[in-house]
Design a protein around this nucleic acid. Sequence first.
DNA 1: CCTACCATGAAAACTTAA
DNA 2: TTAAGTTTTCATGGTAGG
Length: 600
Amino acid sequence: MEPAGTAEDNDASSSSTSWSSTKSRFVDMGYASALVEKAIRIHGTENEADILDYVLAYQAANYLSGSSDLDSSQRDSFPDPEGSECDDTYNFGKTQVNNQEHIASSQFSKDPQLGDSQADYIKAQLLEMGYSESEVSSAVDINGIDSPIVELVDFIDAHRRGVENYEFLEANQSFGNKGLEAEDENSCLREYRKRKQEDIVLKAGSSSIKKKMPKAQEKKLLKNKNIRETVQSEQVELNDENLMLPYPSLEELIGFGVPGYPGSVEQRPKEIKASMHGPPFFYYEHVAMAPKDVWETITRHFGGIGPEFVDSKSFSVCMRPRGYVHNLPIDGRSRVLPLPPMTIHEAFPHTKKFWPPWDNREKLNCMCPGRVSDVLCQALRSILTTSEGNPTLHEQSHILENCKKWDLVWVGPDQMAPLEPNEIELILGFDKDHTRGASSRTDRIQCLGNAFQIDTVAYHLSALKLFYPDGLNVLSLFSGIGGAEVALHRLGIHLKCVVSVEICPKNRLILSSWWIKTNQTGRLIQKEDVQHLTRDVLQELVDMVGGFDLVIGGSPCNNLPGNNRIGMDGLEAKRSSIFYEFPRILNEVRQIMRSKRMRA
DNA sequence: CCTACCATGAAAACTTAA
DNA sequence: TTAAGTTTTCATGGTAGG
């Protein structure tokens, strides 16, 4: 991301150098050069955020008015609205002229001149999200075209859930087409996942990294080589939205690329719609292993943007498969330093002399916020002592199984123990004792288990640093112990203002304490409940802060993960449905900020 | 009320073998 | 192709003691 013209242009004046480098950077992002020039004339080259705001506001206004004050030759330099020049790469800032904001604000919906085109636009958006025409029509008819898209989507989803039961009964009476279609779709997903995984294995095999490949898969790989090549040449089909919702592969979750896998994707599989471009950027995190359809629902609520599935084992010593939905640029990512330990032996060197050779673990599991019973540890230890250090294969298997399940490490001769809270803190990338002082030991393990893995999240956020050299205004939802804030801080990104929303008072105390401990010079505003962030409250916050650059968070998902024995009821369940607040707030902020730009 | 402790499986994808 | 086996998982509720 080196700006063009730094060394060669030194013969020119410094302002001219700044002008051309700023201009070329924005032109590289895909904006028309005439528009960029105009923005720079108005705002100068000092504050690039102002330039970006201007460009975005101009294009939004251009859509609404249906005209342009640039002449036709200049207009030609806009990106092709049909996106024909856009391949699979992620086009940051490549705003399309004839696209409006994803959600039409109420301000515009009341404009009678815009009524029809807006209705068409909203319908088109919903169709693009995968809903049928009849669903869209009935939702608009019943709710009215003034309703935010989020509400329309909720309405259709609710309606679908209602009819699902009916369809189930019907399917049991006769084999309808509906069931066959669903089966076809599932088989497509499976096939796509297989190909994707084969691709990863192939590419990884060509590098220095050795990947295990089962024999059956190897045979299949050879057999399907031609098919795979055919599929690769048919990008259009693969990039179909339905196919871009793969359930995460347990073997490898490398998202759009992780360090150390030179052959990985490194590209967004599907272009982001202009309506979902930042600012504000957003970043939403959720467990990868969720019941069926959860990720599809989430994707629908983020304008069709699919999750980037990543396992933190690529960034740290612990596994942590997660899906991240975001509109961040993916070029220019970098890791935070110092790099964390990647194996158990690196992380806990003192355990090495007690580590039995038959325990072949190199990574820790996800560190679920549970706690192993001392009874179990004693039972395992007694197996070792009675066998005098030579357990049978069956006993080894039993012990190893529990070590994996509870993330036990060897702390003495024939003795294993769970991780301490400060050890988990370090593994996740926090400072030691980050959670100390505000919570009990149980609470510390609990909230750490729900937190971000800093190295992973920071890698994704690192691309923002180039765009915000002066720092960020952040709206942090479901902040927890402040993983987002810590990640940005460790990247060296200045936190100008953070509005943090967290329901748990202990977690709020941890964050405010960290804020002081790390000598933050920005402003921290703490709120309690995301449900209290109404339109008015958000308007007030945006006015006070001056607009958010990043909306970030991961909502609770207690009702989703597999180790929930009791209430694994899906996204709609009591403790998980709060998810819907994130897209709601994100869209409210988008509307408010756009209105603000329009007024300015 | 706070804290620590313990018992409680299943959903889903993937692997292997018949 | 099919089916059984393997692996992993941001958890919940109850009890006891302070």
